[in-house]
Design a protein around this nucleic acid. Structure first.
Length: 779
DNA sequence: CAGGCCGTGCTTTTT
DNA sequence: GCACGGCCTG
């Protein structure tokens, strides 16, 4: 068992995720436990009941902040202590992050044990590697990302003579995804909807889905949903395999059970028949993935599904103040399709949550940043205590810019993720093609990247020919001399490419890192970037170097079992969330969906407006179920807060270039919060001050040099960087004498410094603006 | 044939 | 306000 070395993160500002292969052997940042300061040392009677339960099905209905993870990990520890072999335990989560946390916290309790803890997708990917032939695959199959999926759909549309403008690939994919999650195969779908007269779009999908599936299969590839679909089908159709796994995993735990879809439900059901020791934990009130096929019914009917279910309710909240919890409860009780839950806490009353109202998105972002800056300068919290949530990613941009202006350190889950970067995808495509020569998407990506004179036309000729003969694209490239109409130049270029690909193999390179370096070298992929002054080239280069280091990490963690497939799997099944570091010393920005499972002392839910929460899309369907999911989403956001909760909305919001008058979210009246108005009701003086502040920003006095204090004062003169003091700087004070700076907080006139004097106990804190402190010596 | 430029169209949430 | 697709040019 090996530990991942603690990686310095973020030096380059690049995103980065450490590959994680789901086995309980990974230790990331030991000692990081999410603030459990409210949590008593011992378990409550209810928690203890859940922990002690061993055999038979159990449902743990866990409200927000009720110590669910703690219960689960203690239970895992208990199972081991009762002598159950770790190999018989299977723990499934939805996110890598949850898996990692569960693994880490279990490890803290019982040390390393080879329990398999991982996501549904990873579990299925692994099973599929073991038994690929049952799904018509080879074990070196590739996992397509959404980009590859769209390319594949486009190709299918082209082949079928369907216009991609009227039938957007994204929408088609969404339908296909829904079908797969409902375990409807391409053949079944075609049969069901071929003649869908009422729904023309559905009829098109009925043509596209089978062709798309055929294309994937011929490329020895799967998409995300296939991982589940293939496994579910093989468990249903192959009794021997089912019985085998049923025998193997006798104690199964599924976290966030309210988010399981039909495929996941069937998978779990299939392997928990002989030994129905299935523990499902979750919270129906936090079911927020209905749009992607999750069936809240799965958890609601759990008790009816299995015999003699023991149900444990965890309703005591250890996370939030009374006022926060009450506000969230006032919201969620409006859901009618719901099991009643009585949330309570013995935490303190706390401050009332507030609704902040701003003029527009720009003011909203600016004021939030300012507010954070002020509170931080007053020492009210650490940056990492604070999180901003929003319904749609597009709201993050304005916030991010404002935070940058006010020098508030922040990290974002989303935006352009590391594995979505073009250069990273290119590199991975080379590795994919090496691993799986049939990989169509990878071939098309790299055949002319970097440019080697193989144009669209040549590629089209090659791909048509390959399809006609029935071979993969790389095979066709090897035999390109046989392709009619292909120009001499193209034949030369393609042959060279094919020959080059032949030279790459993990076996001869020895490690993934060396293989990747070899590819970069032979393809001249980064040539020119090193010398380039251009910012984008430098970024691209940094990303490629980062990927090399990811490969290096993978090699180190898998000295004996390393495989290209393993590496590629670990890179394709990660998400942006995985890169977030709770201890980064930065404000965290993310979507409400991404916020589930986390907690922060200070939370802002931004843009609580009709059309955002609830989102337009659910408003248009006008279905109770949809609106209730939106309500749960806000509920999730609100219940992340420990001490301070702010909801915000604006008067006018700019979307897609259009300024639109905003209607407050219908949920706001349900929550009923005190309002703090940042619009015109402000004193005249402040309004004009605000205007002058904006002018200063516009003058281009280098907003980057503006400090929170400078903005507050409406001046730029104090923007002269932070405080003039730095840590370790030698200083002199008239009374205390010589000392050195231990810490600097805040900026300019708002700043304070802590100074240590040799002849003084502890440190002395000074207001920079007022103290006679003088720097000494060189600086 | 490739690369750059310009115009259009689109934007929920994620493994 | 962005990304992508299509068009035009070198």
């Amino acid at each position: 068992m090996k530990d991942i070395p603690d990686q310095p993160n973020g030096d380059t500002g690049m995103h980065r995720s450490v590959p994680y292969d789901g086995v309980h052997q990974v230790i990331l940042r030991p000692g990081v436990s999410h603030s459990i300061e409210f949590m008593p040392a011992s378990l409550t009677p209810n928690q203890q009941q859940a922990v002690n339960h061993i055999d038979g099905p159990m449902l743990v209905l866990a409200g927000p902040g009720s110590g669910k993870t703690r219960v689960i990990t203690h239970r895992l520890a208990n199972l081991l202590q009762q002598g159950i072999p770790p190999s018989q335990i299977l723990a499934i989560t939805f996110t890598n992050k949850a898996a990692r946390e569960m693994a880490e916290r279990t490890r803290q309790l019982v040390g390393n044990a080879p329990i398999w803890i991982g996501t549904f997708h990873r579990f299925c990917a692994r099973l599929l590697r073991e038994r690929p032939e049952t799904a018509g695959l080879q074990s070196n199959y590739s996992i397509c990302d959404t980009g590859d999926q769209k390319v594949a759909i486009r190709e299918v549309l082209h082949d079928l003579g369907i216009d991609a403008v009227h039938f957007p690939p994204a929408r088609i994919l969404h339908r296909i995804s829904n079908a797969k999650n409902d375990l409807i195969t391409a053949e079944q779908f075609a049969e069901l909807h071929e003649e869908a007269i009422a729904d023309h779009f559905q009829a098109i999908v009925a043509k596209v889905y089978p062709a798309y599936q055929q294309l994937l299969l011929s490329a020895n590839s799967v998409d995300f949903d296939d991982l589940l679909l293939h496994v579910a089908r093989m468990l249903i159709e192959n009794e021997e395999l089912r019985a085998d796994l049923d025998e193997r995993y006798r104690y199964i735990l599924v976290d966030e059970y309210q988010d399981t879809n039909l495929a996941q439900y069937k998978i779990v059901a299939a392997i928990s028949q002989l030994y129905p020791n299935l523990c499902a934990s979750g919270d129906p009130d936090q079911s927020i993935y209905g749009w992607r096929g999750a069936k809240i019914d799965n958890i609601l009917r759990f008790e009816a599904d299995l015999p003699d279910v023991k149900t444990v309710r965890l309703e005591e909240n250890f996370r939030s103040t009374k006022r926060i919890l009450e506000s969230a409860d006032r919201l969620i009780v409006n859901n009618r399709l719901r099991k009643h839950k009585a949330l309570w806490t013995s935490n303190s009353q706390g401050d009332p949550p507030e609704l902040l109202v701003f003029e527009d998105g720009k003011h909203e972002a600016d004021q939030i940043a300012l507010l954070l800056r002020e509170k931080y300068d007053r020492g009210e919290f650490k940056w990492s205590d604070c999180a901003l949530f929003y319904r749609v990613n597009s709201l993050s941009r304005e916030l991010e810019m404002a935070l940058t202006r006010h020098r508030v350190p922040h990290q974002i889950a989303a935006g352009v993720a590391f594995y979505d970067r073009r250069e990273v995808k290119d590199c991975l495509a080379y590795l994919r093609l090496i691993s799986n020569p049939l990989d169509r998407a990878a071939f098309l990506r790299v055949i002319n990247t970097p440019a080697r004179g193989i144009g669209k036309k040549s590629v089209a000729l090659l791909s048509n020919w390959a399809d006609r003969i029935g071979i993969g694209l790389l095979d066709a490239a090897h035999r390109c001399r046989e392709i009619p109409d292909l120009s001499k130049r193209a034949v030369t270029a393609i042959s060279r490419f094919a020959a080059m690909m032949n030279e790459f193999s993990l076996a001869s390179a020895g490690s993934v890192e060396r293989l990747l370096k070899l590819v970069l070298e032979k393809t001249n992929y980064v040539t020119g970037w090193e010398q380039s002054e251009s910012e984008t080239h430098q970024q691209s280069l940094a990303n490629v170097l980062e990927l090399i280091s990811v490969a290096h990490d993978y090699d180190e963690q898998h000295p004996d079992t390393r495989s290209l497939e393993g590496f590629l799997e670990s890179t394709s099944l990660v998400s942006d969330l995985d890169q977030l570091d709770p201890e980064a010393g930065a404000v965290t920005l993310m979507t409400l969906h991404a916020a589930k499972g986390l907690e922060f002392p200070v939370v802002f839910v931004v843009g609580v407006e009709q059309g955002l929460i609830p989102h337009d899309r659910s408003l248009q369907t006008n279905e109770v179920r949809e609106i209730e999911e939106e309500r749960r989403l806000l509920f999730v956001g609100m219940t992340r807060a420990q001490r301070k909760l702010y909801l915000t909305r604006v008067i006018e919001r700019q979307t897609r270039g259009r300024r639109l008058h905003v209607i407050p979210s219908e949920f706001l009246s349900e929550v009923g919060l005190p309002i703090r108005d940042f619009t015109n009701s402000q004193p005249e003086q402040q309004t004009s001050e605000k205007a002058s502040r904006m002018r200063n920003l516009k003058k281009g006095n280098g907003p980057l040099l503006m400090t929170g204090a400078a903005l507050l004062n409406g001046t730029t003169e104090s923007a002269r960087l932070p405080t003039g003091f730095t840590v370790n700087m030698k200083v002199r004070h008239p009374t205390y004498g010589l000392g050195h700076v231990v810490e600097v907080r805040g900026f300019a006139r708002k700043g304070t410094v802590d100074v240590q004097f040799p002849n003084q106990d502890g440190v002395v804190t000074f207001d920079i603006a007022r103290s006679p402190l003088q720097p000494v010596g060189l600086s």
